[in-house]
Structures are given as C-alpha cells and as structure tokens.
C-alpha cells in the first residue's frame, strides 16, 4: 500500500530521532550523566520504524535490552525517556528502570528487558489478551538473533500458532548476539526458516529498508487482525556500535564489515529515495534534523532540571496497593 508523503516524512523523522537520541545518550553516558549500561540501536532504525508505522496506537509491542528505538517508534515522550536514563523521578519508571527497562504501557510499549528472549512470552500474553478482548488489536515481539536460539522463542511461537494469537514476531538479526556471531550459533542462516516448523509465514526482509519492513509488517498485521494467527518477520540488519556503550567492551567484528553496513545506512537510503520522489528537499531535511536536535536538547534540559527521586521511593511500588 502506498503511503502518503506526510507519513513517509514522519517515518524519516522517527528514524532520525532515534539516531540523534542515541548519539546524545551515548555522549552523556560517557560523560557520566547516564549510569549503568546503554545499548544503542543505531543502524537498525528502519526496523522499529517500519514495524510501528504499520500499527495502531492501541496495538502493543515489547522490546529488548536495546529498547530506545522501539520506544520512540511507538510514540514515547523523549523527555520522560531521557529523564529515565538520567535516573530522575520524572522518568518513565521514576528512575527505577533506566535504559534497559523503559516502558510506557499507556502507548502499548510493554518494556525493554534485560533478559534475552524474556519479553517474548510476555508480549505473547498481550496477544492472548487481545484475542480474548476480540477488538482486533495485535501485539508485536521484537527480539534479536540471539533470542531466536532460546527456549521462550520456540515455546511462545508454538503457543501463538496453536491458538492463532494476533502476534507478529520480528527478529532483528543484526548478525551478533553480544559478541558472538550468528553465523556460529544459528543452525540455519535464516531465523525466518523456523516459521515452517510452526506452520506460520516466515519472511526475510532487508532490515535497512524501512519500506520493505513496513510492507512485510502490513501483511502480517492484516493476517493477525483477521484471526489468521502469527507471522515471523526476520529483518537482516546491523548495529553500528558495540554491544554496549561501555568503553573498551569486546567487539570482535571486523572494521570492513562495519563499514560495509554503514554504507547501507537505512536513513541515508530512505532520504535519498524520498528526495528522488520529491517527497522532501535537502533544505527540509536539514531543517527536520535541526528540529530533532533541538527536541533532544530540550529533553536533556528537562532531565537535568528534574529532581532525583526521594529516598522513600526506594520502598514504594514493590506491590500495587
């Protein structure tokens, strides 16, 4: 289905927002203003953006430890995201979650998760909830090539297929599980091939082509809304940065491989296409980027001006009242 120019520009804006947000998060992490660990999604922006562009606001997604892109693509507020990274009480999780546990249930973003494959059963439960409600909602599980080798992937897809849950399983195959190559751990080079074992559609798409991701998701969403059950979409992509932003972390990936993927930059490719179609001008693109940078600066200011949580907060929210 052809998208309006406005919608395509919006998708571009989301991709660039993810990139600029993470560039800033990485800088601020290295400056010591953001704590713990930050996993960057840079290079993979087309996946979250293309998938979420095919969803309705009340559809649900679950993320991974590399969650900023999914948050932004589902419509999360940058200020509350940045405040969470900064550990402030105005953050999405009141400063208790950090980068690895950002969630906004009000927009259907069921959380980033520190356990590889941990989110897959949880979002499958959201899919069961959607089926029981019968209002046509769908749920999307984002996960990586690493998670596709873990039990919860297989258990969840089997249940979703057996019960025809309105699920879309999106594998972001960035070719490495932390520092271990998918080539050395996947029995079949394509995760999508596993769909055959569950009698559901499985497709491989260019994860650096946002429109290809969008089209595949559209098809899977239509199937899910039509009570025909789950689909598996494997997006071949690549992260430009190390597994985490920690300086000195192990990264065995050859520079030539990283460079080759950077030449397939999902944002540059999309911008070039949009310019060819006359959908955006160079000036408008620059202006968009400046707007995004200003918005991110605002989010940082919001975070810095927000207080840290009161110490009493440490014992709050262990249980719901």
């Amino acid at each position: 289905m052809a998208l309006t120019q406005e919608k395509q520009r919006e998708m571009l804006r989301i991709m660039q927002t993810i990139r600029r947000f993470e560039e800033r998060a990485s800088d601020d992490y290295r400056a010591g203003d953001i704590y713990g660990v930050v996993h960057c999604y840079i290079g993979e922006e087309a996946v979250a953006t293309g998938v979420c562009a095919a969803l309705n606001p009340d559809d649900q997604i679950i993320s991974t430890h590399r969650g900023h892109g999914h948050c932004i693509a589902k419509g999360a507020d940058l200020k509350r995201m940045m405040a969470e990274l900064y550990g402030r009480e105005t953050g999405y999780c009141k400063g208790k979650g950090g980068s690895m546990h950002i969630a906004d249930f009000s927009i259907g973003m069921l959380g980033a998760n520190g356990i590889v494959a941990g989110g897959i059963p949880i979002v499958t439960g959201a899919g069961l909830a959607a089926q029981l409600e019968g209002k046509g909602r769908v749920a999307v599980s984002f996960f990586g090539d690493g998670a596709s080798n873990a039990g919860p992937f297989h258990e969840s897809i089997n249940i979703a297929a057996a019960w025809k849950l309105p699920m879309i399983y999106v594998c972001e195959n960035n070719l490495y599980a932390a520092s271990t190559s998918a080539a050395s751990t996947l029995a079949h080079r394509d995760v999508a091939a596993r769909a055959a074992g569950y009698d559901i559609p499985g497709v491989v798409v260019d994860g650096n082509d946002v429109m290809e991701v969008y089209d595949a998701t559209q098809e899977a969403v239509a199937r899910a809304r039509n009570s025909e059950g789950p689909s598996l979409i494997e997006c071949k992509t690549y992260r430009w940065r190390g597994h985490t932003e920690r300086v000195g972390g192990a990264d065995p990936r050859p520079q030539s491989e990283i460079r080759a993927w950077q030449e397939r930059d999902p944002i540059e490719r999309f911008v070039a296409g949009l310019m060819d179609q006359g959908c955006i001008t160079q000036e408008a693109w620059q202006e968009m980027d400046e707007d995004i940078l200003a918005e991110i600066e605002e989010s940082v200011q919001f975070a810095i001006e927000s207080p840290f949580p009161d110490l009493e907060a440490a014992v709050e929210d262990v249980f719901a009242e």
Binding site: F105, P121, I122, T124, G125, A126, L128, A129, S156, I159
Partner: peptide, 27 residues
C-alpha cells in the same frame, strides 16, 4: 477460551500470564 490447556511449557505460560495481566486481565 477462558480455560485453556497449554503445552508443557511453563516458562512461556508464566510469561503469558505476566503480559496478559499487564494488559488488563487477571490470569
């Protein structure tokens, strides 16, 4: 529909409970 026999996959069905609970149900 409301009373389901599941595969013997306790990890998945426990996670499914978490996700359904977070989506307004009471598993």
């Amino acid at each position: 529909e409301r009373v389901r026999a599941t595969p013997i996959a306790e990890g998945a069905l426990t996670g499914i409970a978490v996700g359904a609970a977070g989506s307004g149900f009471r598993p």
